[in-house]
């Protein structure tokens, strides 16, 4: 009985209704007189969700793991900051941030997508660090001492909040659309076997460039939104290797290659990180490291994998013989354990 209920829930139109309901709740939350601190926390979480979903487009759907998303986040932040300082509307500034990030994504992608899998991942570390060093020394952005973002008019937190929520919702919607489109199918094909995908008429190089550009656009806008709220940015923050790692960590926690995993990861990262830093300022790196190690060793599909497993338990359908064998995830997570040794 309970099993039937759950099955109906996940199969029905709820799929579309539930996200909309969630969005409505999140949008109306500030009306319930939340303190500014809670709104700030939710704002930060929404920014992280945007980045997490964007990373997942490239890393999860397409299987191209990038350690360099701070490049787009930082360039977006600086692009928006310079525009706002020049007196333009912040919303125009966010579009410029997206544009700058897209340009950067082509600059990064054109050479590096000639590399495969791990070599691409390693090259992105180099790209990220080079960008940080250059930004640390660039005069027009204030170099290492950072840049103040001065916006005309009063500070209205709710403006920032709604912008971030709408951006995150947009990112999730685009991610869901891509996941169910022919383009998404092509991306998954590239992830499973690039050569086979090419044989079937998918252009891997071009597809990767496009998805990289879309992911960069969202990450850049998220950086812009963050810069406008934070009013002060510096390369050691927005371009830090740590930022790239945070962006990568969220989808991994939530479950890469799924639509909702990165959202879940973003929520957990946004809220839990804050709590961790507040309550365990001395050991939050240790806790994050251990969490990462445990996820890799025990549940490589992240929380979504765990949920799926629990759901399967509740439904108590007859088990498949190999619960996690031929699975597209394996392509990213390494060849299956059954392989030879």
């Amino acid at each position: 009985m309970a099993g039937n209920l759950v099955a109906n829930f996940s199969a029905g139109r709820i799929r579309l209704l539930l996200p909309l309901l969630l969005l409505a709740v999140v949008l109306s939350l500030p009306a319930t007189q939340l303190g500014p601190n809670v709104v700030r926390l939710l704002f930060g979480t929404a920014v992280w969700i945007t980045c997490s979903v964007a990373w997942n487009l490239l890393g999860g759907f397409t299987g191209q793991v990038s350690f360099g998303f701070a490049v787009f986040y930082g360039l977006g932040a600086y692009g928006a900051a310079l525009m706002i300082n020049a007196g333009y509307s912040p919303y125009l500034a966010f579009l410029v941030a997206a544009g700058v990030a897209v340009l950067a994504s082509f600059l990064v992608g054109l050479p590096t997508f000639r590399l495969r899998g791990p070599y691409f991942a390693i090259a992105t570390i180099g790209v990220g660090e080079t960008t940080r060093v250059i930004m640390n020394n660039l005069d027009i952005t204030g170099g290492a001492s950072g840049l103040r973002v001065i916006e005309a008019g009063a500070f209205r937190q709710l403006d920032h909040y709604y912008t971030a929520i709408v951006l995150a919702a947009l990112a999730v919607a685009v991610s869901a659309l891509i996941a169910h489109s022919k383009f998404g199918l092509a991306l998954r094909a590239i992830k499973q076997d690039q050569d086979a995908a090419a044989d079937l008429g998918v252009n891997p190089y071009r597809s990767k460039l496009w998805i990289h550009a879309i992911a960069a656009a969202f990450t850049g806008m998220a950086g812009g939104v963050y810069a406008r709220y934070h009013a002060f940015i510096y390369p050691g923050d927005v371009f830090a290797f740590q930022t790239s790692i945070s962006i990568l960590l969220m989808p991994v926690i939530g479950g890469i290659g799924t639509v909702w995993g990165p959202v879940l990861g973003g929520v957990i990262f946004g809220i839990v990180e804050e709590e961790l830093v507040v309550h365990f300022p001395n050991i939050h790196l240790l806790l994050y490291g251990s969490l990462l190690i445990m996820i890799i060793l025990f549940e490589p599909d992240g929380l979504m994998g765990l949920l799926r497993r629990l759901l399967r338990l509740v439904r108590s359908k007859p088990k498949r013989e190999h619960p996690r064998s031929p699975d597209p995830e394996q392509v990213v997570w390494g060849s299956s354990r059954a392989q030879g040794h």
């Binding site: 791990p118 994050y288 490291g289």
Partner: peptide, 15 residues
Amino acid sequence: PTLASLLLMFGLWQV
């Protein structure tokens, strides 16, 4: 190299 190994070693580094 797999993503799993990269992330595991990264987690260890943080610890």
